[in-house]
Design a protein around this nucleic acid. Structure first.
Lengths: 214, 214, 214, 214
DNA sequence: TATGAATGAGTGTTCATTCAT
DNA sequence: AATGAATGAACACTCATTCAT
């Protein structure tokens, strides 16, 4: 799988449509997993929502778990790409802001994808490759924050810790957007992104200038 | 149920011990739910670990879901009590610190309890009463932060939002403790608690004095 | 399991009859496996014929394969006991005749049991213990024939081979009885038992006296 | 189908080889059926081993059962031809020996074919035509033995019974060869063929001369 | 109060078969 | 003639729940 299909069309399709079956399954599973959880989403449900027969799932995925892992990694691939897209020359704060905004927009466009990665615990369901993918995401973020730390923008302490701190707050905002409590245009996300920066920035420095309290 | 039994003894018990059956079930379910998730924890498992027969579960709880809700509310009751125990006269920051420390110690003593409330998504499994209980916890915390806001300690914006922001970071620390990545004595928790405060405190004021960067 | 229940009653029984469930399942499976084969016998069928719910199978057996193995070993236990019952002091021919008659009667009484052991190929379904049980049966028979060989009653060549030769013919007769082509009283069985002896007896010796050609 | 393709080449074939598809399927099915049994051999397996697509099976055979029956009858046709090839002028014993040797060599060359006919129970899978084919084989053998009986070579009793007796022992030998426990050159087969003759020959006559005990 | 055998709807998965290409 | 994606009924097995004891 290279990319996740967009979450738009619940269109019934012609019988024996050769393309799109896999994509329909991915989309169906993504939505069910993130709205009801993995265990509560049954293969009959997944198939029905995708408009295919139950057996068809197994023509495209080895198992329900495999299906979850495929989707999960595709989602991570996208999230990581946004991290890598952030301008390498910019300041740490600007890069993080760039990433947060990209993710924020994604949460508006495709909430299920955000939920899958950040808002669902996947117990022992994720395989080694999937866990590696998540670690890669964190690593990319850590790199950004590490560069900020060498520049004195980020407070002392382990870079990995500040990565998780920043992430925890950004995810809080993404969560609200994914759950339609906030829109992308809402002030909330920006307030939280600012708070996330304050939580990890070096104390004495006025990085980012005087805080824009609303 | 009034309280949750402590998480210490995996001792096989004397046959026909008249007391403690319910407590044993609660403890067994708590540990299984938080280590494997609700769906992956089967009633045979819960009963076996509690050292009782499968049917016995239904003498004490209407259903598996009811069991989860009972445990969940008992856990919340405890967490709320710590919020209420915080000194009403102290500053906002001090009260939050007090709460964070109490929870931190609890996470060390009874990690499953923390996981149940803060680190597990419970899909549609929680009933109205349970959701109310969680709302009550948030409300109590909000009250503390609201008082801090009137005193100018907390930044502008919705009190409920800063509550969630503070909580998100504190939970990050509790998570690490509950998962034995950190001990209670580790610097990590305090670093995160400080960051949580920085995330919500008013910008221009030196509340809490110069930051204790490590 | 210590013994196989007799193949008589297809009686519907009272709900929640505490005894006999396992026996009913064993009997049901035995009959289905031997009449349709293992794979063609489905768990719904086995349960229905036993008058219990499908899930009940798994309260008594780990799996369908386990069920097969349990039945198989119980059947072998019985067959072996007949071999051991043969009079140790008698001549080889008499002991074999004794065994053949005991098995012949069993084939009349409980044909399914005979079919299970001798007339069904169990591919890779039998576990090590079951295969050992069959080996034990052959070993016991081999012992009888070995003693006959030392006494010069049995022809030269490997004892194990003559065991299999004798067995192949006896099984031929048991098969006909189990399939109701012959009754126990029919001449056929005795003719075949005599032929089986002729196939393995020493050539020049008149062991067993002049042959009783019919 | 006129004949069974030889069991030699597991060669991957050129794409779009127009001939041989049916033969490849027959060979693949034959090997799978006889090594794992009919039910355990799935159509995906059969197709994969034949190097064709799943659907292709149904261009050549109406169903999996039909495929089995075609193979089965082809195998029988070959076995019957060997019976018919035996020299009509020779003694009964010599003709049986001739047949046994021909089958023995076949078991060495194409064990799967022997297994299919003699060593697999085919439950209710064989159709009337197939069962007729097997009956024909038995009839041909019976004819040989009947002629021996008129000549006084064979013991009293039903010719059909002595046919099955002889067959049971010959099959025992073929089985060992087909399973590579014996080679064609091994003494075992001849020992068993002799025993088979002793099992059915008239008692008082020295047909075949003094027995060649090894 | 506690038991544990029994239940039966439900699970994830397989597979012989079909059919548009 | 050949493909292979799609099918859907069937499979072995699980599990929350019941209830006679």
């Amino acid at each position: 799988m290279t990319h996740l299909p967009g979450g738009s069309e619940p269109v019934p399709r012609r019988k024996r449509d050769p393309r799109g079956t896999r994509e329909r399954l991915v989309r169906s599973a993504l939505e069910l997993f993130t709205s009801q959880g993995y265990h509560a989403s049954t293969t009959p449900q997944i198939a029905r929502r995708a408009g295919v027969a139950e057996g068809t799932i197994y023509r495209h995925f080895d198992s329900k778990e495999h299906l979850l892992n495929e989707i999960y990694r595709a989602a991570l691939r996208l999230l990581i790409s946004y991290v890598k897209d952030s301008p390498a020359s910019a300041s740490c704060r600007d890069r993080l802001q760039h990433i947060a905004l990209a993710w924020r927009d994604l949460a508006g466009r495709d909430p299920a994808l955000i939920k899958l990665v950040f808002l669902t615990r996947h117990g022992g369901l994720l395989d080694a490759k999937s866990r590696d993918s998540f670690r890669e995401l964190r690593q990319e973020l850590s790199n950004v924050i590490a560069s900020g730390k060498s520049a004195g923008e980020v407070r002392t302490g382990l870079v990995e810790l500040w990565t998780d701190v920043w992430l925890a707050l950004v995810v809080l905002a993404l969560d609200r957007i994914a759950n339609k409590e906030w829109t992308t245009q809402h002030i909330g996300p920006q307030q939280v992104f600012d708070a996330a920066w304050d939580a990890i920035r070096a104390a004495d420095r006025g990085t980012g200038g005087p805080r824009a309290d609303v």
